[in-house]
Design a protein around this nucleic acid. Structure first.
Lengths: 182, 182
DNA sequence: CATGTCATGTAATCCGTTACATGATTAC
DNA sequence: GTAATCATGTAACGGATTACATGACATG
């Protein structure tokens, strides 16, 4: 239930409406935990049912401003310190790599070179965000900087790996043409 | 629909039963795409309904051996070359980092140091697998070696990042105690 | 008064997890 | 004969995605 705790975490920084939270989400948490509008509104109602947040204000156009409760802060801290993170990383780009042997070597290399390009571009995108952001602001932002740094290092490592892997294809492919049984 | 293509990819290497595939899955693809037994059997039936695989043999204990069809191979190649991989990487360990500012600095550092340890251990686990495996065997295995290399580099980069991030906590925390408005 | 933005919600569907059910065959 | 392994399936539930629905308020 990470969406739940993502919302609690954002509300720990101050009151906000679902609409506000959606915008913040899309620009920050969505990099590591995307959520849709309907999912978010549904989860806010469930959090309110469980008294981890309360409606602290109602504005025009049915706007509901939520505030985190002490019970919500307790639950957030519990999640951060006591709950073991899920280590599953589904990665369908990497799943494909298992099967590149079913393609022509040229196609396999093209796939890996493209992966390298995509990750290099992503690395640059994140670097640009770092340059253009004011990191002094709030503590949420300061820790967000750490997350982006991890993204930069991840993208960099993946790009390097993909270039290396593309070279390996020639060597992996070579034995096929040698004398022993394939 | 990556499970679907994962199964097609395994069957491209030769016929197998659901039971066989489950074991292969758990030891290889599960690192990047876990699947449960019930999911796997269900998907095999759907693949057979769509004629991408056929039951080529029936053995004792209701065993059904599946073989990939030409249509299945075409679909596998299409997925590998024409379908853009999903770039979403849900990561609840990283989501927590956004909110470490709500904890005491000591707790935040402890969280990051633990992440470093976990990734270092994982890196060693993968390195051990590399040492203990015969990589000459089949092409599936040879490309699997590339996937493991990516896992090693990922785990290494994450561990280094987490050590660095733990150091940053002191510096991120410092401004709180300075004169300007928090 | 028309368009854009603010604002929240419901419903259908898909994928994944957990638990349960069932039974055949093999090995001791 | 009994325990382990082989082997496949169903059902309930929860989270995520997509599409649809609705309406208030602000701006020109």
């Amino acid at each position: 239930m990470s969406l739940r705790h993502g919302l609690l975490g954002l509300l720990a920084d101050g009151p906000a409406s679902g609409y506000d939270l959606l915008k913040i989400f899309d620009r920050s948490l969505a990099f590591v935990w995307p959520a849709t509008q309907s999912q978010l509104y549904g989860e806010l109602n469930r959090l309110a049912d469980d008294r981890l947040i309360v409606v602290s204000n109602e504005g025009p156009r049915r706007r509901k401003e939520y505030t985190i409760t002490p019970a919500g802060r307790t639950e957030l801290a519990r999640w951060l310190t006591d709950a073991e993170p899920d280590r599953i990383r589904r990665n369908d780009a990497m799943l494909r790599v298992f099967f590149l042997g079913t393609l022509q070597p040229e196609q396999a290399k093209a796939y890996l070179e493209r992966e390298a390009d995509v990750h290099e571009n992503f690395e640059h995108l994140l670097s640009d965000i770092v340059s253009e952001t004011d990191w002094e602001a709030r503590s949420f932002n300061r820790y967000g900087r750490l997350v982006i740094e991890s993204g930069i290092r991840y993208a960099h490592a993946q790009a390097e790996w993909a270039r290396w892997a593309a070279q390996q294809v020639d060597e992996l492919d070579a034995p096929r043409n040698r004398s022993h049984v394939s």
